[in-house]
Amino acid sequence: MPDKTIAAKVDALPGDTASTAGVVVTDSGPAPEKARSLWSDAWHDLRRNPLFLVSAVLIVFLLVMAIWPGLFTGTSPTHADLAKHYLGKPNWGHVFAGDWLGYDVQGRSIYARVVYGARASITVGVGVTVAVTVIGTIIGMVAGYFGGWTDTLLSRVTDIFLGIPFLLGALVILNSFDDRTVWVVIMALAFLGWTQIARVARGAVITIKQSDYVVAAKALGASTSRIMFRHILPNAVAPIIVVATIALGGYIAAEATLSFLGVGLGDSAVSWGGDVARGREQLRIAPHTLIIPSVMVSITVLSFLMFGDAVRNALDPKLR
């Protein structure tokens, strides 16, 4: 898959061999008026993609919620009034009020917990994605560019990490920490998750390394760092971004899963996964305590998956 995405705009065949419609069009006539980069082309596509628009609106909404939860509710997620609110039912008429989505077993506002829980999920999702992208890209590029023994060594290391079951590995690692903050969870997931990006980056780099424009740069006497950062990285970045955005949703789901299993964020942290776990005990008498945080996880994961899908369609010229 990564190999195909590299072709980028290079997919046009030599002039006299045009055989597909797309080529016929690209090879003819004078150039259009303004400069168009891959990114502006992608943006042109994205703007017209309803999938992208819906997911982008949802993601912006979630990000705002994660950064400024105070904008959405004045109620504290940790304020518990057991006597008054024990498993209070949702009060659908009181939109954005403390009792809008009801109360949990300790009398805490579920609405407030949903709002404040976004921060944990999004921080973990974005944090892990950034970390795996950086680690994976560096390892993949080094392996792909230098080849030989470096590649053999790094590829075997990648294979070893790939062999560790993701959730089981995370369970084991997180179990050994007593104080499981957001950063610990991010580190644990990133430690296990970089392999996918590394493989994609390595594949992309190997393909790009052989392309004529890299050979041309070498013939000019360009340095290794120039070839890596001016020629290879900008061309490899599209498939990496695609994989990273799609993976982001998965990391959010993974955090929720780990929290549900009790090895995610600590009990004091506000997180959707933890709330789902606690809600399970009241499933019979108060199903809303489980359903509402679960729906939030689903919406968030789905938003990022849709977003990643839209980005892939825009950046992968083979689908055009």
Binding site: A8, K9, V10, A12, L13, P14, S37, L38, S211, D212, Y213, V215, A216, A217, A219, L220, G221, R230, H231, P234, N235
Partner: peptide, 18 residues
Amino acid sequence: RRNIQMVFQDPYTSLNPR
């Protein structure tokens, strides 16, 4: 290198698309 330059066959792949 400065004095010996090259022109490539395929004008579609010899220019960096980015």
